[in-house]
Write a protein that binds this DNA or RNA. Sequence first.
DNA 1: CCGCACCTTGACCCAGCGGTCAAGTAGCGT
DNA 2: ACGCTACTTGACCGCTGGGTCAAGGTGCGG
Lengths: 204, 204
Amino acid sequence: MRRKLTQRGRERRDQLIRCAAQLFAERGYHPTSVADIVECLGVGKGVFYWYFSSKEELLSELLKSSHLSLRRRQQAAIGDEPDPVRRIELGIRATLQWFHEHRDYFAIIQFAATDETFAPVLRRNREVALGDTIRHLKEAIVEGRIPDSDPETLAHAIHGVIDQLTRRYLLETNEPVSRVADAAVSFCLGGLAGGLDEGVSPVS
Amino acid sequence: MRRKLTQRGRERRDQLIRCAAQLFAERGYHPTSVADIVECLGVGKGVFYWYFSSKEELLSELLKSSHLSLRRRQQAAIGDEPDPVRRIELGIRATLQWFHEHRDYFAIIQFAATDETFAPVLRRNREVALGDTIRHLKEAIVEGRIPDSDPETLAHAIHGVIDQLTRRYLLETNEPVSRVADAAVSFCLGGLAGGLDEGVSPVS
DNA sequence: CCGCACCTTGACCCAGCGGTCAAGTAGCGT
DNA sequence: ACGCTACTTGACCGCTGGGTCAAGGTGCGG
């Protein structure tokens, strides 16, 4: 469903995605009907199918676009920082900040992860995210800023920490972002310095 | 939907729950129809509604019964162990073992967590689980086996660790249970000894 | 062997869903 | 002013899926 869109068209599309995101977050994907989505915008049903070929496609696009938004935020935060370790720190902080401002997406992503249909998009997103982290890690290793160990494993560990801390502290409590970010950063940088060689657990 | 059930009746009910659990785990809750469930048992649709008043109720019962099963496993593992700290350790090991044997339930619980409908059951389950842990913790504190700090926070931290390790190592890798359990136990007991006073993160 | 309670059947009901489309409107480029 | 393309409408459709029910089977206590 690639169409030529005018400015107005692009806005409508965004409205639909935002509207759907809110409803999906509130009631879940399946219980939200296409009728609900267009009603919430006060438009006819045809509008939906002008911009998306199916409800599934909308969610896929939502997942892609939210990931893009997060990634842009990270890049903006990192800027042209030369130190790879500091880049990782800035990335972690930006990520937590973003999730804090977009709590809704967390529920949606969590749902998408339980449905095979969206596995490809999520896998893709994850690979991109890991790739970003891995690049910084490799550079940090080359420059001797952190000990030499498998960057992929390190990246997984970092993402695991962010995931868990987001879940627990950003969604379930009112903990201020900065404190959670401090904890995440200090733990991750500590983990990087120590390496992960001595055990199965990223926390050992 | 409370009915007088014969032995045979109870078995049917269990069959339905098990069958549904498998289908839910494979395809998800919404995409699995009641027709699918009864078909997988080769019985008529009426059977389903003899035992459950709705598809929702079935999932609620599934969540309750799986939690009961886990709890029984924990209690069996703990036995009459007098040392509260050791009881916590045995509980952690039993939990990981149980999740290892019932991977399917993890996906289902994860889905249920994304649907408001099941929030009450899940909350209830969680409160019971926390209560169990808290009891041991309080006793351990009274006996001076671990430093005095908020048992509820400690319990949350322990459950968080179990949750995360289950997700990462029991579901996504083939790590043997015993090694994951060792890591979980050593981290949790370490955490208990150290307390959580110095930061927001359970890993700091 | 009766009677009763438990269990099973499967055709049926129908609300509501995802998705279509012929017809119409809006606005831009020329 | 015209025409073209982007956009919008909302009635409509086929069908799926949760849920019902009258009728029939099964097995056990008396």
